[in-house]
Amino acid sequence: MSTKEEQGRIELLQGTLDLLILRTLLLGPRHGHAIAKTIELNSDEVLQVEQGSLYPALHRLIKRGWIAVEEGVSENNRRAKFYRLTGKGRRQLAVETNKWERLAGAIARILRPAE
């Protein structure tokens, strides 16, 4: 993942990037660049993905069968690779989201113990 630490950027764990990609693709198939931009936009620029690390993550997800790749034409009429969510990926997204929420909740409880 990203080894740079600039102001405002927060390091992402590897598994988290996978989760974000899956969620992004829930809205529809996208090509690599678009996925990066969507993540940046939707996180109000807090999460700035080192765009290069997107690609190993994408290939990992393809290998696991959670996303699939197909050729297509992009918005400016150029050929591009589009990634889309598979059924398996959809189910995995639900599982991962659940795990993330439980993790976040647990951390929150520790940081702000009930008084």
């Binding site: 990203s2 080192e50 290069g52 690609y55 190993p56 290939h59 290998k63």
Partner: peptide, 17 residues
């Protein structure tokens, strides 16, 4: 710069496979 280290990315992809 935003993309990052191309060589590293290529290596990581190859490793993923």
């Amino acid at each position: 710069r935003k993309f990052g280290n191309v060589t590293r990315v290529k290596e990581d992809v190859r490793e993923a496979w």
